[in-house]
């Protein structure tokens, strides 16, 4: 069975810069991280490549965690706003519908 990730694939995976990773959304970073993990566990991945994969994988993992933490914090904030909302008088000037 030929390995799932060719050398070119591995090179593309490890070519991500910290800046690129820092700008990724959860879905993208997570998908990349899963690929990195698969590549790390793949037989025949060169050691040097493994090291790079580890580096990129760690950065992606950190990014995912950060995005989730930020999302959760925002969610808690929104929820708080919603629960602390005071009943406003029905204002016919605003569109009440």
């Amino acid at each position: 069975m030929s390995p799932k990730f060719s050398v070119q694939d591995l090179e593309a995976l490890t070519a991500l810069t910290a800046e690129q990773i820092g700008g990724m959304g959860y879905e993208t970073a997570m998908a990349r991280l899963e690929q990195v993990v698969e590549a790390l566990e793949q037989e025949g991945t060169p050691l040097q490549m493994g090291l790079k994969l580890y580096e990129v994988g760690s950065a992606l993992s950190k990014r995912c965690g950060a995005v989730l933490d930020a999302t959760e914090a925002r969610m808690v904030q929104i929820r708080g706003d919603l629960e602390n909302r005071k009943e406003e008088p029905f204002d016919p000037g605003k569109d009440g519908r």
């Binding site: 959860y26 997570m30 991280l33 899963e34 993990v37 790390l40 566990e41 493994g50 994969l53 580890y54 994988g57 760690s58 993992s61 995912c64 965690g65 989730l68 999302t71």
Partner: peptide, 15 residues
Amino acid sequence: LARQRLRKAQACRFL
């Protein structure tokens, strides 16, 4: 679910 997915990926022994 997102956290679970992340934990699963992070469980990779090489990471």
